[in-house]
Each structure stands twice: as C-alpha cells, then as structure tokens.
Design a protein around this nucleic acid. Sequence first.
DNA 1: GATTGCAGAGAACGAGCGTTCTCTGGTTGC
DNA 2: GCAACCAGAGAACGCTCGTTCTCTGCAATC
Lengths: 202, 202
Amino acid sequence: MANVSAPLTRGSSGSPDDDALREAALEAADRLFYAKGVQGVGMDELRSASGISLKRLYRLFPSKDAIVEQVLLGRHRKWTEGVATAVAREIQPRERLLAIYDFLASWFSEEDFRGCAFINSFGELGGTSPRVAEIVRSHKDGFQKYLSTLTAEIGAPPYLAPQLAILAEGAQTTAAISGSAEPARQARAAAEVLIDSALSHR
Amino acid sequence: MANVSAPLTRGSSGSPDDDALREAALEAADRLFYAKGVQGVGMDELRSASGISLKRLYRLFPSKDAIVEQVLLGRHRKWTEGVATAVAREIQPRERLLAIYDFLASWFSEEDFRGCAFINSFGELGGTSPRVAEIVRSHKDGFQKYLSTLTAEIGAPPYLAPQLAILAEGAQTTAAISGSAEPARQARAAAEVLIDSALSHR
DNA sequence: GATTGCAGAGAACGAGCGTTCTCTGGTTGC
DNA sequence: GCAACCAGAGAACGCTCGTTCTCTGCAATC
C-alpha cells in the first residue's frame, strides 16, 4: 500500500487539488452573491456553503474582492458560451439573432433567476469599485460587439445592434423585477420588428 | 422682546420643524445611496452629510430601512412627476410617447447619473429585503400602466406598452454602464419604429 | 434665580465584517 | 519511533455597522 500515498501530489480524488477547490469556491460564491448581493454574503457564509476552510480560501484567493472579480469573469464566460451555443443552433442569420431572446426566455424561467449579475453588481458596487465597474462595462461592450457581428451577417445598418442590445438589457431587468419570463418574448417580438424595419430601409 | 420667543412653537427659521429636517435628511440620503449604494453608506456618513445628529435622525425615522424606503418612495414621486411633465409638453399622442425618451436623454446627461435607483436597489437588496423588492416592483408596474394609457391614446394594441417599457429599462441600464446618453436616442429611434409598426398592423 | 426639561455631540454597545493567527492532530521522511 | 512539517478548524483581531445611551449645556417655567 506504499504506492497509494506516493502519487498524492497529483490531484487524486481523496485530495482535490487547488484548481478544483477554486472552482468549487467560485461556484458557491456565484450562487450566494447572485441570490443575496455581494455585500449580503460574508466570508464565513461562503466558507460553510463551500465546505472550504477560511485559511484555504485565503490561500486560493488573496481577498474577497478577488473572488468577486473571478465570479464575474466566470459569469462572463458562461454567458458568452451560452449565447454562442444558442446562436449556433440556427442557420439563417435572422433566426440566429432572434435565438438570443429565446436563450433569455429559458434563462428567465430558471427558478433562482434574479436578473443580470453584471447589472446587479454594477448597481451595488459600481459606484465604489472601479474594478467591478470596468468588468461590467467590458462585459456589456463585448455583448454589443457580438451583436454587431450578427447584425452584419444580415447586412443590417450599424444602428440596429445597439437597439437589440437595449431590448436584451431591458428584458433582463424587467423579467427580474416582475418575476416573469414574458419580457423575453416581448423583446423578441420587438426585435423582429426592428430587424425587418432595418432591413427594409437599408 | 418677550414676544419673540413666544411663537417658537411654530416652525421659525431658527428652529426648522421636523418635516423640513426629514426632507433634508432624505435629500442627503438619496444622493449618497444613489452614488455609493445603500450598504455603502453608513448612518454616520448620513449624519455628517445632512448635518443632522444621529439622535435626531432616529427620532425622525425609526431605522435606516425606513429611510431607504422613504428615499425610494420620494424617487418614485419625482420620476412620476418628471415623466408626466415631459409628456404634458406635447400635444400629439405619438409625440407624447416619445417625449419619455427625451426625458431619459436629459436625465442620462446629468453628471451624477448612475442608472435607475430602483434597478440598483433591487440588485443590491431585492434578494434580502422583501419590502425593497415590493417597492421596486410597484414602481415599475406603475410605469408600465402609465405607458399603457399613453399607447391607448393613439389606439395602439396592448402589446406595445411592454415593449416600450423594455426599451426604457434597457436604455437606463445601458446608459448607466456605458456612461453615455446615447442609449436614450437609440431607444427613441427604436420606439418610433415599434409605434409605427403597431399602428400600421392595427 | 433655582429647577426642570430637552437637544446635541459623540461615546458606547453588540454584532458582523474581512482577514489573520493559534492551536491541534495527523502525516511524511529519516 | 521520532522530529519536522502542514492542513484544518475556528478563535481572535481590528474595524465598521446600526442603534442606543450618557453627558453636557442651554433655555423655558414658576
């Protein structure tokens, strides 16, 4: 049995390595921050929710601020992937654009949906944390740029993308506050009108 | 000089009465909460900003939560008035609807604009404070109902109002995050298309 | 003019925050 | 078998929070 302990330096199942722990910590932090707001969650609550000791948490991350930052960056990755996947299922350029609002609709229907984490974080921390404000800004900017590539596919004029982005943002906050997924469908219907209008005036 | 001190029970300039103090406290609280988030402002900061002692603040309001609530209700009143005033300047129903987006544009241009206080508060506190969530919900609901009366004026189908509301919400968050007033104009242009489309398919 | 009452300033309080430190117990290497 | 080390649990630290209390001094009343 001597050779069992030997390879413990590699990440075995009994002692998950730092990367796996970091992942677990970020998952718990994301869930808690999203549900209660960043300042509504203390490090002790994150410790008990993740099962990771405070000492280890502070070896995995230098500070709570760093965890907030990583959570937001993780959300950005997941959002980008989710949108891209939904879009990729469609072939026709117009349908690819509209797929975004269907993606929103299914997201809004999730039980713990509480709006866009970036908008929420910006409202809570944007005024006091330049780093958070910057991350949120770059996330939203990336989404608009992505929309621009999609609208370019159908040869729509450049003013269309910001309009479709505004619809998506509005749908997110309206759905969060009203607790309904309906805004996604309303935004989709509006998007169809805007797209067709932009194409006909091209 | 005996008669000078006699009428001090009435609110004289030397000793402003509670209502005026309450007003001043709410004004300071509104400014601070909006700029830094509710949890980013302590009662001590509110005391020094308003010039009202803690003891007096707690005689004017039972708790910080009550101040938050009153600030939001005050914002609701000001928003309702501001929108109604902007709308009232126009005669034609279509222009009355679009006046809302002009109102947004001038609001977004204010130096300390940091988005919709209700959306911000919902993101920060909506998950932990049912009272805040309820106030935000009823504020947004009131706005949609108001939009419905305006869209009814032009005989538009009922699906138009929620779409215009989504545009307004999206413009607010997009303007806050991007730091630009442009989303108001983009939303206005989109609203024109949606209105004309809704009217032509009536 | 002595007394009562009240307002203001800020210290104090208990709780909770983010962060660090101490202690304990088990594992590793010789 | 023993010394050296390391990880985990959670106590402790310094701070800030919302809220209350104490102390001081002034002003009104008989």
